[in-house]
Write a protein that binds this DNA or RNA. Structure first.
Lengths: 230, 230
DNA sequence: ATATATTTGCGTGCATTTTACACATTCTAT
DNA sequence: ATAGAATGTGTAAAATGCACGCAAATATAT
């Protein structure tokens, strides 16, 4: 099919962001309450129309920032959803993105397209606008799949953390118990953690050494990819 | 950013198909020669504008069929390219797809957008239109990555084939030698091949048993995912 | 002060998987 | 008949994965 200038199509392009947060054993996702029709007052993924003069990444960062105040330095493209009828306004194709943050690092603001932005546990989700339930489902699968081929945690844990925090992150993401000793051996063999001198004591029990990710090594592993079966 | 009806955007949406073929130790990709400006007479990935009333998958199948005559039952979404300036006609965002076929199964036709469609070895590529070189690069990475987490070959080999064909496919994709004995053990343990009674003798050497993929098992493994280190 | 519960921090042996490696078999071509 | 070429199989060593138990360091209860 050859298009000429007179045959301008009427397809609209949007971006949507699936931003996951993690805090003490709980995975959450960032949603906004819609201000306008359609789906007015329903919860939805942050996102909106792409402007003619901005890249897709710029668009999703802008929408995320406008609607929630969250700024995130790395969003990865997830999938493009373009089925007919996914948006009552007409033909709307959405490029979805995927990111990880520490929820406590941001104060949520609500402005432009949202009357409210809020973190929801992925176990207690509200009804979602459009096909956002489907998008979120695919994003969750990606999140769980990711940990088998790249290291994870840098974006979700504090700068310094006890080893048990990393362990808890993995058990939460995998939704099952893991053997601490073997897990530690595995992580140690990756040489991705630096053990610090500091120790921290939270409540009772033996105080834990603090660790930090070795950023260089971490991003090298991300790039190279790892096969990482827990 | 909230859009109203008066603010219709001018972004155009296209789809592009990266179709890989394999034949006796050679990986090829399907390209078309452009009939119109821009990049008139340059080689490009098959693709074109998405119509308002068709899904993305339908669009890419249609374009592929129109431009090359190739029909393929499974195209997987690869990535969406939306950078400013990737198309001189204005803002054009392209959703790219990825597929595998046996090149000899089709007679290439050339019609609508193409004066010619042709298979090119991925080692001897011509200059490509738009950012299609970049798209192809990402597709090749995906192709090589795929074989580590799912079985491959069904779409690329004949119904019946000697084991050496599968071995050659893998050495070609991985671009290195593999140990035939260990490779066979691995494949056998997956129980994805059915050994047939037939034997075939091509040229000299001991005749080889023919195998076929056990389709049920093959697609089960594709779905489940495998960790498959050669 | 002492005992108890709780959490962290290792190490060892067994089972499984991966890897390296060589020679016999069966055909074609001469 | 013989040489050459491709297929087809087994075994041992090494590496990795996995199950598992106990000591160390602290908070809390008595």
């Amino acid at each position: 099919m050859h298009f000429t200038h007179s045959m301008r199509n009427k397809i609209q392009l949007t971006v949507d962001a699936v931003v996951f947060g993690y805090e003490s054993g709980n995975i959450s996702v960032l949603l906004v309450k819609r201000k306008y029709e359609p789906y007015k007052n329903a919860w939805a993924l942050p996102g909106g129309f792409v402007l003619e003069k901005e890249n897709l990444e710029e668009a999703v960062q802008r929408e995320l920032s406008e609607e929630t105040g969250v700024k995130i330095n790395y969003l990865e493209q997830l999938y493009t959803f373009g089925d007919l009828g996914r948006d009552p306004r007409g033909r709307v194709v959405s490029v979805s993105y995927f990111g990880l943050v520490k929820p406590n690092a941001f104060e949520l603001t609500a402005s432009t397209d949202a009357t409210r932005a809020k973190w929801f546990s992925i176990k207690k989700l509200p009804r979602l606008a459009f096909d956002h339930k489907k998008i979120l489902k695919i994003a969750i699968e990606r999140l769980q799949g990711k940990i088998t081929y790249e290291p994870i945690g840098f974006e979700l844990l504090d700068k310094k953390f006890p080893f048990s925090d990393l362990e808890k992150l993995y058990t939460t993401l995998l939704d099952r118990e893991i053997d601490r000793r073997n897990f530690k051996k595995k992580i140690t063999s990756l040489k991705v953690l630096d053990e610090l001198e500091e120790k921290v004591s939270i409540g009772r029990g033996r105080p834990a050494s603090l660790f930090s990710f070795n950023e260089k090594r971490y991003f090298q592993l991300k790039k190279e990819g790892i096969i990482f079966e827990i």
